[in-house]
């Protein structure tokens, strides 16, 4: 496999960027159709579809960004790390759309009701906490911020992503009725990615 860092920068990054944007474009396009009274694919409850769709993609990108480092370890190449920030920012982007969907479509910007809901519903509290923690990671994702903070402090802050992953999985499990498999699959992937890190650390200690 001969893919140079240069190629990944010039072609790989724009490609991943555009691919990652497809779900959001799909959603916007179908809302545009729905709004115009045209046939669309948002189903009979577009608001519910939007909530679930944006939530699904937020957690997918979060897990993808968490998968980058173990993937690089397996490949014994730092090249996948080129994409980590972008995937993390897409997690924030879809999480933002998820919150927007909830605040706009469910709560209709009724702030007092929203605040009551966030406090009263544990799964919403958990979800909101995850987003709240994700925000500073997005803000400090630039090279400038790494310099300003110093690599060590920056890395420490960005360890928050493990807690965010946990909160996101709990949020997903809690919002389903009955015993459902889908959120558990995501939680399983998250657990596997965390275990991969643990194994690597243990290996280091032994060496």
């Amino acid at each position: 496999m001969k893919v140079s860092v240069h190629h990944l920068r010039v072609w790989g990054k724009p490609l991943i960027f555009l691919l990652s944007l497809v779900p959001a474009l799909w959603l916007v396009y179908h809302w545009y159709l729905a709004y115009g009274g045209l046939p669309h694919d948002l189903g009979f409850n577009p608001n519910e579809t939007s909530n679930r769709f944006t939530g699904d993609w937020a957690i997918r990108f979060l897990l993808l960004s968490l998968a980058v480092t173990p993937f690089a370890t397996v490949l014994r190449s730092p090249k996948p790390l080129l994409f980590r920030r972008m995937l993390g920012l897409y997690a924030l982007f879809y999480a933002g759309l998820h919150v927007l969907s909830y605040i706009w479509l469910d709560m209709a910007f009724d702030w007092p009701e929203l605040w009551a809901d966030v406090l009263k519903r544990t799964y919403i509290t958990v979800g909101m906490l995850a987003i709240l923690f994700l925000l500073p990671l997005g803000v400090t994702s630039t090279k400038g911020w790494i310099k300003r903070m110093g690599a060590k402090r920056w890395q420490k802050l960005h360890k928050l992503v493990y807690l965010i992953g946990l909160l996101a999985c709990v949020h997903f499990i809690m919002m389903r009725k009955g015993f459902q498999v889908e959120p558990l699959i995501y939680a399983g992937i998250f657990a596997a990615l965390m275990l991969a890190r643990l194994r690597k650390r243990r290996g280091k200690v032994r060496a």
Partner: peptide, 9 residues
């Protein structure tokens, strides 16, 4: 997805 929209229609 354009085809899908057509199917729903």
């Amino acid at each position: 997805f354009i085809a899908g929209a057509g199917a729903i229609a």
